[in-house]
Simulated assay, not measured.
Amino acid sequence: MTSTTTRGPIRRAALAAVTVTAALILTACGGDAESASSDASAASGEEHNAQDVTFAQGMIPHHRQALQMAELAADRASSTEVKDLAARIEKAQDPEIEKMTGWLKAWGEDVPEEGGSTDESMPGMDHSGSGGMAGMMDDAEMQTLEKASGEAFDTAFLTLMVEHHEGAVEMAGTEQDKGSYQPAKDTAEDIVTGQTAEIAEMKELLGKKG
């Protein structure tokens, strides 16, 4: 009896100790998890800077013009390779426009209007390129492309799109160097990788035509 009576308080004391220890462990783990989450958030570069805004506001109209050029290929190009390339450009750049539009809205920044002036849409950008930014086509070049067909269209499309892509790669490179928002920097990396490969492909096609 004495043994049983003694074990009761001892067992309760032991259980209480285990409960307190478990609570302390859970609190420590929770603190570690919270700290790790905070560190991960900081490391992910979720904060954006002025360059990220400039990148999105510039790349949206730049992509829009590429889509306009690509859409012309459906009934004007004579080469299957050119039509295929144009389709791939549309498939890649349309979702990127939607993504960058979402960033600007979330940041409370202006989204460039379709058909608006690229100079007005791009504060702080280098306006040395035609159309207000690197690689953009001016009205005369776009009209030339719109009026062309067959092999003449293929050559004009490839020539102008190489220049257009080179401008996008330049803009994306600036974002990689000076941007802060990691999703924007990742998109810039995708643009550099994808469009550099397409530039090489287009130059090869132009070489065959030459």
Rank of each mutant, 00 (worst) to 15 (best):
M1C: 08
T5N: 13
T6K: 15
T6G: 15
T6N: 14
T6H: 15
A14Y: 08
A16I: 10
A17T: 14
A17P: 11
V18L: 09
V18T: 08
V18W: 15
T19K: 15
V20S: 04
L24D: 14
L24E: 09
L24A: 11
I25R: 15
C29W: 15
G31H: 08
A33M: 03
E34D: 15
E34R: 11
A36V: 07
D39Q: 15
S41I: 13
E46S: 14
E47M: 12
H48T: 03
N49S: 00
A50S: 02
Q51M: 09
F55H: 04
A56F: 01
M59L: 02
P61W: 00
P61H: 01
H62N: 02
R64N: 08
M69E: 02
A73S: 03
R76C: 07
R76P: 05
A77H: 00
S79Q: 00
K91S: 08
Q93G: 00
P95A: 01
E96D: 04
E96Q: 03
E96R: 00
K99Y: 07
T101Q: 15
W103N: 04
W103C: 01
K105M: 07
A106S: 10
G108N: 15
E109C: 05
P112D: 09
P112H: 10
E113Q: 09
E113I: 09
D119I: 13
M122I: 11
M125L: 12
H127T: 10
G131S: 11
G132Y: 10
M137L: 07
A140H: 14
E141R: 12
M142Q: 04
T144S: 14
T144W: 10
K147M: 11
K147F: 02
A148W: 00
A148Q: 00
F153H: 04
T155N: 13
T159I: 11
L160K: 12
M161P: 04
E163W: 14
H164Y: 12
H164I: 05
H164V: 04
V169K: 05
V169D: 05
V169N: 11
G173S: 11
T174N: 14
D177W: 12
K178W: 13
S180P: 13
Q182L: 09
P183I: 03
A188Q: 09
V192L: 08
G194H: 08
Q195W: 06
Q195A: 03
Q195V: 04
A197I: 01
I199A: 09
I199F: 11
M202P: 14
L206Y: 07
G207R: 09
K208P: 09
K209P: 06
K209L: 06
